[in-house]
């Protein structure tokens, strides 16, 4: 995306020059670009992670032994190892392994690898959040659904999960914020998101303020997210 378009600014334009006399517009653009990448990473990996996390949660509470074990192992591995390492495994170790076994090179786009690793990691945490949410619903609800002739799937999708949404939002919001901050770890595989842009500016220009500005932007984003989630929580628990 052309960021200058987004900001309705043209580098040679009057407005740009006027603003540039107050703040360094090159630095602003760099920060804006980094912030956008951070947001993209967060939103995409949370979206995908939510779907995967839900499936894993259902596996965790199912009565099928194999599903139960597989999903348990998944959560065990992804919560028990550092995200930083998971990012390296997806981006570095897997292509090298592939090369060793097949003799063919495998190129993974770093952005894709970052999204993928973040998704795998957050899915493990979200699965536990969703599982707890589902289990927190009174078992009388499932009994009433069964007694009315609903199948397990119908009871889950129409009765249990809708009720667990409002209870799941606070821990979900927490996980969202964690991932938002942890997107900074993807800088190790060369993603130029907010943290990396700021650290490059700081070390390149010697301007220590860059680091604090980055901190301010993160704080702004997490504050907005918290606010939005608490609004959503209120909306979804109106019936109580």
């Amino acid at each position: 995306m052309n960021l200058n378009m987004l900001l309705l600014l043209n580098e040679g334009g009057k407005l740009y020059q006027w603003l540039d006399s107050y703040v360094n517009m090159t630095k602003v653009s760099v920060f804006a670009r980094g912030t956008l990448v951070t947001l993209e990473l967060t939103l995409l990996s949370m979206l995908l992670g939510t779907v995967l996390g839900m499936l894993i949660a259902l596996g965790r509470i199912s009565r099928n032994k194999i599903l139960k074990t597989v999903t348990w192992v998944y959560v065990w591995i992804f919560r028990g190892t550092p995200l930083l390492l998971q990012i390296l495994i997806v981006y570095l170790a897997i292509p090298l392994m592939y090369m060793d076994f097949t003799g063919m090179p495998l190129r993974i786009d770093p952005f894709m690898a970052a999204i993928f690793a973040l998704m795998l990691n957050t899915a493990a945490y979200l699965a536990e959040i969703f599982r707890a949410g589902i289990l927190s619903i009174d078992k009388g609800q499932l009994e009433a659904s069964k007694a009315l002739g609903m199948s397990y799937t119908q009871a889950m999708t129409k009765v249990i999960i809708p009720q667990s949404v409002s209870r799941v939002i606070p821990p979900y919001s927490n996980e969202f914020i964690m991932i938002l901050k942890d997107t900074s770890l993807t800088s190790v595989i060369g993603i130029t998101e907010l943290y990396r842009e700021a650290s490059r500016l700081a070390s390149g220009t010697g301007d220590w303020r860059m680091v604090f500005i980055a901190a301010g932007v993160y704080l702004f984003l997490t504050t907005i997210s918290t606010f939005v989630f608490s609004k959503v929580e209120k909306r979804t628990s109106r019936y109580l």
Binding site: D138, G140, Q141, E143, A144, K146, A147, L148, G149, M150, S151, V159, P162, Q163, Y239, L240
Partner: peptide
């Protein structure tokens, strides 16, 4: 399983603790 759910729908049940669906 599907026969059991069908049979259940023919037995109405009223619980001690009501068990109404709070979101409806």
């Amino acid at each position: 399983g599907s026969k059991v759910t069908e049979m259940c729908s023919e037995l109405g049940m009223v619980f001690q603790r009501f068990n109404l669906f709070p979101h409806k």
